[in-house]
Every structure is written in structure tokens, then in C-alpha cells.
């Protein structure tokens, strides 16, 4: 199969991936870089479990063709805690406020929340709900996820 060589920034590090041209960003992250935090919940852009941040925007990496990542900056769930292991405020808030249950939606949920808070540090409930509208969760009923994001926004101030 025809391969491409794609260079981009991944969680702050310059990287190059040599992968089949048909691969998505999600597949590349999971199978080439072994960053398995982003999950495939549907593979067709409906559930948000695969959400990562590309140049500041939350995207469904299961739909994102790898060639289009060239030159961009990609942040995944593995790249938001501090190097010393201390958690990002959104991660802490999810643990403290039960924003995570089974955790399968969580990587994507947190990345959507991060993209939102990076753009709008002071969102109201509706902004938050819109920010995670594409992220499905079966466990939580979203209530404590929304609260976690509110909590993280406050903690960041």
C-alpha cells in the first residue's frame, strides 16, 4: 500500500510518521505511535471518543486523514499533564467530581473540554454543553462532566 511520510508536532515533540496514505490520524496515533489514549468508539465521526486537538481545534481523529496533519500541531490526552506527572486541572477535576466512570469517553471528553477552555476560559453551562456536544458518554449522564469542566475553569483562574 502506498505510504506517506508526514511530519508534525505531537505533544510538543517533532515527529515523522511513515504510514499508509489511507490511515487516519487516530490509527496513526494508536498503531504507529502507540498512543492509545484516543479511542475508537464508532470510527465514523459520531461519538467523539477519538477527539484530539489539532492546531487548537478539537477534531475527531477517526475522520482526519493523516496526510492533512503535515506541519500541524497535535495534542492528545497523553500530552496534557505536566512532564513531572502532575495532572492538568481538567484531569484533576474529572477525578474529583466523578466526571469519569468507565473512562472510555474520557480522553475525548477531556480534549474537547481543553479545546473549549483554551478558547473560552470562562464558559457558561451552555458553552460547555456545546463544547462536548459531539462527545457521547453512556455512564455519567453528562452532569458531572459539565460540573468537572466548570470546576476546572474555576481552578485555572
Amino acid at each position: 500500500m502506498k505510504k506517506v511520510s508526514v511530519s508534525f508536532t505531537l505533544n510538543g515533540d517533532p515527529v515523522t510518521a511513515d504510514v499508509p496514505v489511507t490511515w487516519t490520524l487516530l490509527k496513526t496515533l494508536r498503531d504507529y505511535f502507540e498512543l492509545t489514549g484516543a479511542k475508537e468508539g464508532c470510527g465514523v465521526g459520531e461519538c467523539g471518543a477519538c477527539t484530539v486537538i489539532v492546531d487548537g481545534q478539537a477534531v475527531n481523529s477517526c475522520l482526519y486523514p493523516i496526510p492533512e496533519v503535515e506541519g500541524r500541531s497535535v495534542t492528545t490526552i497523553e500530552g496534557i499533564a505536566e512532564k513531572d506527572g502532575s495532572l492538568h486541572p481538567i484531569q484533576t477535576a474529572f477525578l474529583e467530581n466523578n466526571g469519569v466512570q468507565c473512562g472510555f469517553c474520557t480522553s475525548g471528553m477531556i480534549m474537547s473540554a481543553k479545546a473549549l477552555l483554551d478558547q473560552n476560559p470562562d464558559p457558561n453551562e451552555e458553552d460547555i454543553r456545546k463544547g462536548i456536544a459531539g462527545n457521547f458518554c453512556r455512564c455519567t449522564g453528562y452532569v458531572q462532566i459539565v460540573e468537572s469542566i466548570e470546576m476546572a475553569a474555576k481552578a485555572d483562574k
Binding site: L35, T36, G37, A38, K39, T76, I77, E78, A81, L87, Q91, F94, L95, E96, N98, V100, G103, F104, T106, S107, I110
Partner: peptide, 14 residues
């Protein structure tokens, strides 16, 4: 849920 911190960092292995 600190005991489950792997779930918020992408480390949990499904």
C-alpha cells in the same frame, strides 16, 4: 477517584 487516574491520562488499557 484518584485510584483511577490512568483513565484521565490515556494510560488505562482497554
Amino acid at each position: 477517584r484518584t485510584i483511577e487516574a490512568d483513565k484521565v491520562t490515556g494510560k488505562a488499557v482497554y
